[in-house]
Simulated scan of single mutants.
Amino acid sequence: MTRPARIGVQLQPQHAPKYGLIRDAVLRSEDAGVDIVFNWDHFYPLTGDPDGAHFECWTMLGAFAEQTERVEIGALVTGGGYRNPELLADMARTVDHISGGRLILGLGAGWFEKDYDEYGYEFGTPGTRLALLKENMARLSARLKKLNPQPTREIPILIGGGGEKKTLRLVAEYAHLWHTFADLDSLARKTKVLADHCAAVGTDESRIERSVQWQGAEQASAFVAAGVSLFTVGVSGPRYDLSEVERAIRWRDEVNPEPVSGLA
């Protein structure tokens, strides 16, 4: 399946001492023409002052849902160990309804130890966090089917990570989008591994959209040739400078045959 290129922006909720700065950045992002507005699911800044200003992910997503009209929204990504998966399913269903069916449910195993330690979650090991993500995916998927009212659509699930034995197996079983930090050489190998997992579980590999961080227009065409269609620009507060986002949008509009609307 050939998909049109899409541009996301990750408005990293760090170093913004007032929420109004984030609200303004969401408005400017939608007006600029992005396809998706992401945040992230951390409790502390990942760069700069480690105890600097920061806001919580899912509360913001509810606000994003009310504020925006066109863009899809989601977390890149929700930490796997922070929330009961049944509750997370209900949160996602609720934001899906608030947004009129524009939520992408991004999930990952988690990795930032300070988040866990400071908020009282067990950090464990990479292996235990991946095992928990696997358990949570099954529970979350089951709860989504039981909720009343049901989601407005089958909520697209994005899984972030590149582990070839466990993470890509979960991508094959559950995901509509796969976000990876792999370089081009690694991406080719991991794509083959993902295809093998899809064959093993009976998933149509073509349903899974590939997603990477934006690395500039010079790199983007090569990633498109490798099967990537979603590129996300990370932007931090307090200024939320969207100049690189605007460059990415111009590139998207040059390479796409027609305007993009939602998941292809």
Rank of each mutant, 00 (worst) to 15 (best):
Q213D: 10
D185T: 14
G262Q: 05
M91K: 00
L177W: 08
I159K: 02
R247D: 05
G162F: 08
A217G: 11
V171N: 02
P85F: 06
R207G: 05
G81V: 04
Q10G: 09
P238Y: 14
P238T: 14
D117L: 15
V77S: 09
D185C: 09
L147P: 03
P259W: 02
A172G: 06
G234A: 14
A248P: 09
S221F: 08
G120E: 05
I159V: 15
A199H: 01
F55Y: 15
Q67T: 13
G62M: 06
P13H: 02
F223I: 11
S221Q: 14
D31P: 11
P238V: 13
F181C: 07
V233M: 00
R23W: 05
Q150F: 03
G100M: 06
E122D: 09
R6Q: 07
G120Y: 11
D115G: 06
D31C: 10
L105G: 01
P17K: 15
E218W: 02
L21V: 07
A217D: 09
G108F: 12
Q213P: 11
K145G: 12
E205A: 14
P257L: 09
A226D: 05
H97W: 02
T203H: 15
A5D: 04
G62C: 08
Q213N: 13
F223T: 07
D90F: 10
T125P: 13
G48K: 03
G108C: 10
E205F: 15
A225N: 12
N39M: 01
V260N: 03
Q14A: 11
W251N: 11
N39W: 00
G124L: 08
P238A: 14
L230G: 01
Y119A: 06
A172W: 00
V260Y: 01
G227W: 05
I36Y: 02
I36L: 05
L194W: 01
G48C: 07
R70S: 14
A217W: 01
W178E: 10
A264Y: 05
F64E: 06
I159H: 09
I22F: 10
G237D: 04
I157T: 03
T128L: 06
G202W: 13
L105R: 01
E209D: 04
I36T: 14
V9F: 12
T47K: 12
V193A: 04
L177Q: 05
W251I: 14
C198F: 11
A138Q: 14
E122M: 09
I104G: 03
E154W: 01
A131S: 08
G20E: 14
A175Y: 03
Q14V: 03
L177Y: 03
F64T: 05
A142W: 08
Y121M: 10
I208D: 01
G234F: 11
G234H: 08
Q150T: 07
Y174E: 02
R153V: 03
R169E: 03
A25T: 08
F38K: 04
R83F: 13
G100Y: 04
D35K: 07
V212G: 13
L168W: 00
W178I: 12
I155D: 01
A222D: 10
S236W: 04
A199W: 00
S221C: 08
V37I: 15
L147D: 03
G100T: 07
A220Y: 04
A226E: 07
A264C: 11
L61G: 10
I249P: 09
L242G: 00
R3I: 09
G160V: 13
D253G: 15
G227T: 08
R70T: 10
D253E: 15
F64V: 05
Q219H: 13
V255Q: 03
N148R: 13
I36N: 01
H179D: 00
L107W: 15
